[in-house]
Design a protein around this nucleic acid. Sequence first.
DNA 1: ATCTAGTTGCAAATCGGTCGCATCTGGTAC
DNA 2: GTACCAGATGCGACCGATTTGCAACTAGAT
Lengths: 148, 148
Amino acid sequence: MPLPQTEMPGRLQAYCAERGIRMTQQRRAILRVMETASKHLDAAQLLRKAQKLDASVDRSTVYRTLRLLKRQGLIDELDLMHIHGEGHYYERKLNRDHIHMACLRCGKIMEFVSDIFEKLKGQVEKDCRFRIVVSRLEIGGYCANCSK
Amino acid sequence: MPLPQTEMPGRLQAYCAERGIRMTQQRRAILRVMETASKHLDAAQLLRKAQKLDASVDRSTVYRTLRLLKRQGLIDELDLMHIHGEGHYYERKLNRDHIHMACLRCGKIMEFVSDIFEKLKGQVEKDCRFRIVVSRLEIGGYCANCSK
DNA sequence: ATCTAGTTGCAAATCGGTCGCATCTGGTAC
DNA sequence: GTACCAGATGCGACCGATTTGCAACTAGAT
Ligand SMILES: [Mn+2]
Ligand SMILES: [Mn+2]
Ligand SMILES: [Zn+2]
Ligand SMILES: [Zn+2]
């Protein structure tokens, strides 16, 4: 007999279980949205999507859950250069860190993985004796299309 | 006869003059604070300090002036990992970009200049054909003192 | 089935930042 | 110097994003 809500639990749910974090209907909905999101979501978008899975989800629960996931290091918080207002964006933390570039003209967001970025973080850890927990490199400028 | 307010104008004032930006009492006060600030100030701190030079300075003028200086590329806006609330911090843009590290335990902010950072930005410009206007690398973690 | 610590929805509050508008002023033209 | 006006200012209201207090409601352990 399959458990409809919990079969094939996404990675985030699995992590939460491992860490003994209580799982609620609302958290399940929010985690599922984070799991399956194709791109960076802000709190309002996350709320709307989560409410489609569980209509009872409240705005404050979204914020509380985001705080939880941040504390656990399971998601990253981005500014995306505050191109659209003062809010923040969220994405699952992946195996590999990446840089975010935001085009100041067309608003496009690009991602870029770089060994040099990894090397730079290594340098910071070594030269500054600083233990890195989270890092964020955001770049504003003009994409290939917009810079001509 | 020396002009008390304008003799030895700081770099920021000089830049504004070059660019034909109108100089007001209030802007003079705000620019002077930015000039002489030893470290990253948020809008509220900037307001308080500016009001000591010109009591008439208003909060909205501070924000308007910050927007102006940002547009002109004369200052950088920082999150400092939002260690203290959701606000932003500001600093004069110097000749050389630098990284900001924020200790998640003691709150100390450290700065670091790195050639590898410059190389990384070069890579982004070349490999992604992205014209960089502004870049922000912020790192959260534990400083040497706090990580033992 | 019971119990309780942790979680939730809701409404109100807070916080950082912006805006509309009447008034004022810096800098230029005379 | 005086007149002029585009642009800047103070003020207060406003806004969007996030947090909080609290009573009601579970999840999960016993
Ligand atoms: Mn991303
Ligand atoms: Mn921010
Ligand atoms: Zn573009
Ligand atoms: Zn520290």
